[in-house]
Write a protein that binds this DNA or RNA. Structure first.
Length: 436
RNA sequence: GUGGCCGUAGCUCAGAUGGUAGAGUCCCGGAUUGUGAUUCCGGUUGUCGCGGGUUCGAGCCCCGUCGGCCACCCCA
């Protein structure tokens, strides 16, 4: 064995023992979103670098130092998407989905950021993004939040709390930003290196500093709430009413500032304390200016993204994750001629019961070994097809789990009844056609 | 990008002060020539992350590097 090739740092395989939980999770999300009328959209994983630079913001950490950017063979600068909103807006504009229309969209898939990996933070990670276009009132903000709250309930997720804030209109936010920069510059002697840096990049972030030396100065800083425009203020108040009416508890965190430039007005985060430093499990907000900024006509919009790895590890910490389903039956083959007879029987049973999970022994092995495989497979029943059974046209059904009846040998015709009864299987499977 | 801890069998881990690698589990076979998870017996599994240095001798000490974890930063 020469030098082992290993996966790229921060990019991990999702193994069979975990994929059951992923599929279950994704199914809950899909059904919840569908119940609110959201439709899936699938975008490419690679986009022109410019798309992200123009939407996320030139001076954000993501664009400055975290993107996987490379040159295509024809010299174009391409980037592995670090988030989904920009691509979703691009796709919507490009395909005319946003032209004077309302759209409720969602997508799922990998995102890429070149950061130092740690728990809950990976270089390839997976998000589910939800975006709503063409609705400017707080009702859609509330819908997005209620949708997530419902999803948490459905997942059995505890341990998350909601924080909301408003950034005001883009104009109000820009004006406030100037105020703030002026204020900080007047207190430059108190600023630490980090803050000096952020003065240029994201001054609002300074408000969130953990440095105790700066606490007093920050307390005295002008507040965003005092610089809100009237309509943003009202928007925010209505959102709070809607959340209260729906019984979704929240706290207002005036220092909650999302890192991406395109946010305005409503921002929110679902946070947990159970995951260490990576406590944000779902976050989003309104981005009324982005569509226009990317070449569409002015379209109000709001959305959020949730991190699948973080949510799954939170669920795991809070009671465990579901596993992939085991086979219903394991078919053992013992003796001359049972190989081909077994294939025939398996296929016939799968025809009869489309939902049946039947694992047939392959690769030989002694009786004992097959018995052990049947047990390890997690199957409820072992079907034994040996020479004696074959000669009589019968099959032995051996229950493998506690609380089941004795084993017995039945004719192959009677087998279907036994399986249907023991496993509660449906015999028909319909293909969804109409709205059913 | 910065700092701290850690890398030994597929997995979980043991290997005082340097003396040429071990357990459990898993897998395979047998005890029980057609009855699993228990028991007993036997067997396979390693460039001790990688590269260099010190030493008669390095899993152990030193340097570098890669990777993991944790925190900072940032974010999902």
């Amino acid at each position: 064995m020469s030098r082992q090739i290993k996966s790229i740092r921060g990019m991990h395989d999702i193994l069979p023992e975990q994929t059951g939980a992923w599929q279950w999770f994704e199914a809950q999300v899909r059904e919840t979103l569908s119940s609110y009328g959201y439709q899936e959209i699938r975008m490419p994983i690679v986009e022109q670098t410019d798309l992200f630079a123009r939407s996320i913001g030139e001076v954000t950490d993501i664009v400055e130092k975290e993107m996987y950017t490379f040159e295509d063979r024809n010299g174009d600068s391409l980037t592995l998407r670090p988030e989904g909103t920009a691509g979703c807006v691009r796709a919507g504009v490009e395909n005319g989905l946003l032209h004077n229309q309302q759209q409720r969209l969602w997508y799922a898939g990998p995102m890429f950021r070149h950061e130092r990996p740690q728990k809950g933070r990976y270089r390839q990670f997976h998000q589910i993004g939800v975006e709503a276009f063409g609705m400017e009132g707080p009702d859609i903000d509330a819908e997005l939040i209620l949708l997530t709250a419902r999803l948490w309930r459905r997942l059995g997720l505890r341990n998350v709390r909601l924080e909301i804030n408003t950034l005001g209109s883009s104009e109000a936010r820009a004006a406030y930003r100037e105020h703030l920069v002026d204020y900080f510059k007047a207190h430059a002697e108190v600023l630490d290196d980090d803050a000096r840096q952020r003065l240029e990049t994201n001054p609002l972030r300074i408000l969130d500093s953990k440095n105790p030396q700066m606490r007093a100065m920050i307390q005295e800083a002008p507040s965003l709430l005092d610089h809100l425009d009237a309509s943003s203020r009202e928007h925010f108040e209505q959102l709070q009413c809607l959340l209260r009416a729906a019984d979704v508890p929240f706290t207002i965190n005036p220092r909650l500032v999302r890192g991406l430039d395109y946010y305005c007005r409503t921002v929110f985060e679902w946070i947990t304390d159970a995951l260490g430093a990576q406590g944000t499990v779902c976050a989003g907000g309104r981005y009324d200016g982005l569509v226009e900024q990317l070449g569409g006509r002015h379209t109000p919009a709001a959305g959020f993204a949730m991190g699948i790895e973080r949510l799954l590890s939170l669920l795991e910490a809070d009671g465990g994750l579901p596993m992939a389903p085991s086979p219903h039956v394991y078919l053992m083959l013992a003796g001359e001629g049972t190989g081909s007879a077994g294939v025939e029987l398996s296929e016939q049973l799968r025809d009869q019961f489309p939902g049946l999970r039947l694992q047939m022994n392959c690769g030989g092995g002694g009786f004992k070994a097959q018995m052990r495989r049947a047990d390890r497979s997690g199957a409820q029943l072992a079907l034994i097809l040996g020479e004696t059974e074959l000669a009589e046209g019968r099959v032995t059904v051996k229950p493998l789990r506690e609380g089941q009846t004795e084993q017995h040998t039945v004719t192959q015709e009677a087998l279907a009844h036994h399986l249907a009864q023991a496993l509660d299987l449906a015999t028909a499977e319909t293909r969804p056609t109409e709205n059913d």
